[in-house]
Structures are given as C-alpha cells and as structure tokens.
Amino acid sequence: MIGSRRRIGGGGQDNSWPGFVDALSTLLMVIIFLLSMFVLAQFFLGQALSGRDQALAELRGQVAQLGNLLKMEKQSNQALRDSMAELSASLTAANKDRDTLSADLEATKSALAASDARLAEMTAARERFEADATDLAERFKLADDALSEERIISKRAQEQVAQLQRNITALQEQLGRLEAALQASEERDRRNQAVIVDMGRRLNRALASKVEELAGYRSEFFGRLKEVLSTRPEIRVEGDRFVFASELLFASGSADLGPEGRAEMRKFAETLIAISQEIPQELNWILRVDGHTDKRPISNAQFRSNWELSAARAISVVRFLISVGVPADRLAATGFGEHQPIDPADNVFAYSRNRRIEMRLTQR
C-alpha cells in the first residue's frame, strides 16, 4: 500500500502517510480485534458462569434428591433387615417343621412297612385258610360218602336186627307154647325136649354146613384169585386175606388208583363177580377192604394223618370195585393207619410191607 502511494506521487511532492501511521492503524485494528474478542470472551464467560450456576443449582437439587433417596434406601434396607430377620425366624421354624415332618414320614414309612408285612401275613393266612377249607370240603365229601355207605350198612343191619327180633319173638312164643305143652304133660315134655335137642343139632349142623359152604366159596375165591394174580409178586396171600402192596395201587402220599392198580383191581373184580353169582343169596357174605400205612407220619393239605390216608385208599378201592360191577352192599372200607403193622421193624423193607391194602371175604 505504501509503495502504491509512493508510485502515485511520481516525482512530485511526497505527501504520503508516514509509516508509523500504518503501524498505528494496524495496531489499532489489532487492539480493536482483541477488545472484540475480550468482549466476546466476557460474553461467553458470563453465559458459561450463568450456566454453571444453573448446573450447580440443579446439582444441589439432585444432591437433595439423592439424600432423600439415600434416606429412603436406608429405610428400605432397615425394612429388608427386619424382613430378613423374620425370614430367618420363619426358616428356622420351617426347618423345625421339616425335621418334624421327616420324623413323621419315617414313622409313617415304618408303619407302612409293618402294614405291608401284616398284609403279606394276612394274605398267606388267607391262602392257608382257603387250602384248609378245600381240604375240609374234600374230607367232608369223603366222610359223607363213607357215612352214606355206613348208613346203608346200618339200615341193613337194623333190618336184620328187626328180623332177628321178630324171629326171637316167634321163638319166645313157640317156647311159651312149648312150656305150656310141657306143663300139660311130662311125656310130651320129654318128647318136646327130644325134639328141641334134635332141632338144635339140626340147626348146628345147618349152621356148620353154611359155614363150611362159605368156607368152600372162600377157598374157591382164593384159589381163582391166586391163579389170576399169581404173576404179581406185589400181591401176597396171608391166611384168609389177599395183601396188595400200596406201591402197586397208589403213588406215594396219594389215594388215587393208578393205571396199574386199576388193571389189577379189574381182574380182582371180575373174579369176585364170577364167584359171587355162585354163592347162595342166603349167605350174607361181604368183602372187607382194609387200608394200612407205615408208621412214618404224614401231614399235607389233603391228609392230616395216616389214618385218613389209609381210609381214603380203602374207600378209593371200594369205589372202583363198585364202578366195575361189584354190588355196593357186599363191600366195606376200613382204615387202620399205622396201627396194624405186619412187620414191626424200623427200616424201608418193613415200611414197604406195612403199606398195603388187604381184602378179606367174610360174613356179616
């Protein structure tokens, strides 16, 4: 700028501004700029200070709020501590209740186990009672059958007794008439005495003849059965009876005739039926079937003693004989258990001999 001003003047009079004027104007401009900046700075600083005061006021308000919140938090913490104390007390009580309930649960489990054991015992007892009831029903049926047979036999015996009583009454009447006749005449008395003696002799002879006749049939019966059963070593003839080994007829501890025993009994029945048709009707013969066991005791659901087993076996044989045609009124079943041994020794051979079925033809 100064140079330009110098060029304008040319070579004429130098009327340019001194150089310090330019410096002063520049300095003035700088000062004005600085004052402007200072004013602006003061303005912005005042704005900043006023904003700081407002922020401080807000901070004070927030601090007051935080104080209130802290106070409320302390109160909440105290309430929580009280709640925690109550919860601790409740937890202690709950633990005690839990321990009590655990003890009660253990006692209940023990009682349940005892109840289960008792139930098992009662179930087993019920099963035993049912088995006993079944056994009693079977025994009652056997006893009822035996009783029916005994009633039939008893009825026939009563009829025979009644007939004998009528015969005795008739004889008493005859004796009365004879006594009257004897009183009327000693001669007639002697004659009647002679007649009575003669009648007695004839009666004795007749009875002896019947006995001999039955003995003859018995002998024939035994002879034929010997021929039929001679091939079996398990069947023996001892005196006036046939002896069948139980092993031939029955399984151990059973009263049911096996297939082999049924076959032998069928042969026996056929021979008995053939001979019975030849025996006169007035001979009141009967075949007695006797059951025997060894002395070793038996006790099971079906048989409580050897006596019951021997009777059941005898009845089983009688029933089979009836089923193949032998008249029921000619049969009788008897059980002796172990009380009639034929070998008193205490070994397996004696036991085998004593377990037997005996059959004997006799008179009523």
Rank of each mutant, 00 (worst) to 15 (best):
Ala162Phe: 00
Ala194Asp: 11
Val243Cys: 01
Arg288Glu: 11
Thr92Asn: 12
Ala124Arg: 05
Arg60Glu: 14
Gln54Ser: 15
Pro233Met: 00
Arg151Gln: 05
Ile31Pro: 09
Asn300Pro: 00
Lys74Asp: 13
Trp285Cys: 01
Gly11Arg: 04
Val348Ala: 10
Glu213Asn: 08
Leu164Ala: 11
His292Met: 02
Phe33Leu: 13
Glu121Thr: 07
Phe244Ser: 04
Gly253Phe: 08
Glu308Lys: 02
Ala255Arg: 02
His292Glu: 07
Gln13Thr: 13
Gln160Asn: 08
Arg118Ala: 09
Glu86Trp: 04
Leu272Phe: 12
Ala157Met: 05
Val30Thr: 11
Gln172Ala: 07
Ala48Gly: 12
Val243Arg: 05
Phe244Asp: 01
Ala111Met: 05
Ser148Tyr: 09
Ala170Arg: 14
Pro297Ser: 08
Val317Thr: 01
Ala314Trp: 03
Leu70Ser: 13
Glu282Ile: 05
Asp290Arg: 05
Ile342Cys: 03
Gly61Asp: 15
Arg6Asp: 08
Ile152Ser: 12
Glu234Gly: 05
Ala215Pro: 01
Ser25Met: 06
Lys210Phe: 03
Gln281Cys: 05
Asp189Thr: 12
Asp116Thr: 08
Glu247Pro: 11
Ala131Pro: 02
Gln78Glu: 15
Leu225Cys: 04
Glu238Trp: 03
Ser76Leu: 15
Ser36Glu: 08
Asp189His: 15
Gln65Ile: 12
Ile168Arg: 11
Ile168Asp: 08
Glu247Gly: 09
Leu225Tyr: 01
Ala215Lys: 01
Leu171Tyr: 06
Glu187Tyr: 06
Ala350Trp: 02
Val21Asp: 13
Gly337Val: 01
Gln172Glu: 11
Asp189Lys: 14
Leu40Ala: 12
Ala157Glu: 03
Ser115Leu: 10
Val317Cys: 01
Glu260Tyr: 08
Ala133His: 10
Leu248Trp: 10
Ala146Thr: 03
Ala114Lys: 05
Val30Gly: 10
Arg156Pro: 07
Glu121Val: 06
Leu56Lys: 15
Asp346Asn: 12
Ser4Trp: 11
Ile8Ala: 13
Thr123Ile: 08
Pro233Leu: 02
Ser88Asp: 09
Gln340Glu: 10
Ile235Trp: 01
Ser219Cys: 00
Ala206Val: 06
Ala269Arg: 01
Gly176Asp: 07
Glu234Asp: 07
Asp198Pro: 13
Gln62Phe: 14
Arg156Leu: 03
Asp343Val: 00
Lys210Tyr: 07
Phe222Gly: 02
Arg296Gly: 06
Leu321Ile: 03
Thr123His: 10
Pro259Trp: 02
Asp104Leu: 11
Phe44Thr: 13
Pro344Glu: 05
